[in-house]
Design a protein around this nucleic acid. Sequence first.
DNA 1: TGAATATATGAACAAGTATTCATATATTAC
DNA 2: GTAATATATGAATACTTGTTCATATATTCA
Lengths: 96, 96
Amino acid sequence: MTLSELKAIQLAELFSALSDASRVRIISALIEKEMNVSDLAGKMQMTESAVSHQLRGLRQMRLVRTRKSGRQVFYSLDDEHVKKLYLMGLDHVKHG
Amino acid sequence: MTLSELKAIQLAELFSALSDASRVRIISALIEKEMNVSDLAGKMQMTESAVSHQLRGLRQMRLVRTRKSGRQVFYSLDDEHVKKLYLMGLDHVKHG
DNA sequence: TGAATATATGAACAAGTATTCATATATTAC
DNA sequence: GTAATATATGAATACTTGTTCATATATTCA
């Protein structure tokens, strides 16, 4: 069963979303609880702008979703699938 | 439980290995059976040089291993873990 | 309304990466 | 030994990507 070029691109895009240490740390933080942009920026030691740019990509990939409350935007993982991918990768890194 | 910066980098590197459509297609091909460089190049429609460069990265990440036979080098997936990550990603893309 | 705050976004630059081309190494056959 | 074949590698180039800075949008509070 050969993988179509389209699926290959989509798969690559999915993994690309997790291919940066900043984004991995954002995902890791969001696994524990939802957070808004400035909290994430504080925790990540990144500017809010940089975090916002990264979150945009994660949003477009539908890896995270948003909940607006006043002028704050809270981010959380979009589904359990993302968490599973993350944990499986972590397992590989730990016992690889 | 906060993710260490080192682990974040290692995780990002792991996912980076799967963050390119060419490499995804190589992994996909190797899931079915081991292949040598020129067979992969033919199947991927890439030059043997380009394939070899990509395989080098996959080797360094220990996602693939090699078996030498005469002047040919056969590549296969290093372990089931890689296949699982690939299939979980594919599932996400299909039903995401 | 205007000031303050939270987030988003566009442009620019730096850093990283995939491919191509030329060349090197290794193995087999003669 | 030489020729032929399979793969690997270094350098160069083009492309992509992450961050910063400046600015824009949106919301709350006075």
